[in-house]
Simulated scan of single mutants.
Amino acid sequence: GSATIGMFPMQWIGHVDDVVVVDDHITGVLSEHETGKQLDVTPTGIKVLGRRSTSGRYFQVAEPGLGWGGTDIDDPLKILGPFNPKIAWEGLRLLMVSTTGEQYAYYELDKDLIPKLKPIPEILKFSADLIAENCEPSVCSVLFMGGAGGSLRAGVTENPVRLTHSVKSALTNVTCGGAETYVWPGGGITVMVDVMDMPTRSFGYVPTPALVAPIEFTLRVSDYAALGGHVDYMTTIEEIDQDNVRRVKRKVRLNDPMAAENYSWSKEA
């Protein structure tokens, strides 16, 4: 709720006197919020029934649920107390909106300073739609981090530390199942990869115990020979037994591991 107040205040200035963004976590109030103060929003005498945090931010306005802003309420006025008669005025315009923009209501105070539901102006309806548009799906990020141990590197070169130096010097590109990796700057070869970019069934397990993930090192043949690679055992792609290769669709948004921009040498080299 507080973040919504900070993101969309210019949608409300001049069209409404106060805005309450209802949220199970933090409910925001425009006139009390630092954003409102910076924009010279006039105090409205509004009272929110919750535990006040910093200015314009309230916790525990209701219990969690499937109602407004993830709370258990279906009437947003339940979180409001009486308006301060020394500050509020008849005709005060109030927008109440959920933090996802899915629920919204527009009120005006009557002569007794009681909020009365009114048809929402189109400009305020647009602001609620804008809030909803900026809500993204809640997606879990699954990242795998692992390292290339000494025995693995020895399978690549007779001098394993040279492979490490080659990776650190960006002469060798590291992928996991063809997916781009982030190589951690510390010692050894420790990489992190987005599991969703990897092929299905990429991971295995051994009794060590340990997880096993695919890892590929791509570099020029001349550099491979220079770091002591097992050049006598090199095999071309065409020589691989194609009948026993599991093929997966290429992810077009990922870089080609053979692309020149993955390496530090010049195009002329």
Rank of each mutant, 00 (worst) to 15 (best):
L80R: 12
D40L: 09
V41A: 09
D40I: 01
E63W: 00
F59R: 02
Y58G: 02
R51L: 01
Y58S: 02
Y58A: 01
E32A: 11
F59C: 05
E34K: 02
F59D: 04
G45T: 14
K78Q: 12
P43N: 15
P76M: 05
V41F: 11
H33Y: 07
I46D: 04
T42D: 13
S53I: 00
V48L: 04
L66Y: 14
T54A: 07
G65V: 14
V48A: 06
L66R: 15
D75W: 05
G65H: 10
S53P: 01
Q38H: 12
D75L: 00
L77P: 01
I73S: 06
Q60W: 10
E63T: 08
G50D: 01
A62P: 00
W68P: 06
G70Q: 12
G70C: 13
V48R: 12
L39E: 14
G56M: 00
G67W: 15
L80P: 09
G69N: 01
E34M: 07
P64M: 06
E32C: 12
L80V: 04
G36F: 04
Q60A: 04
S55C: 02
G56V: 09
G45R: 14
L77E: 00
H33T: 03
G45I: 15
T42L: 10
K37V: 06
E34I: 00
I46G: 02
K47S: 12
I46H: 03
Y58L: 01
L39N: 11
G70Y: 07
L80H: 06
D75T: 11
T71A: 03
T42I: 15
R51T: 15
V48Q: 08
L49Q: 10
L80Q: 15
K78R: 10
P76W: 03
P64I: 14
E34G: 10
F59I: 03
R57N: 08
S31R: 00
T35E: 07
I46F: 08
P64T: 11
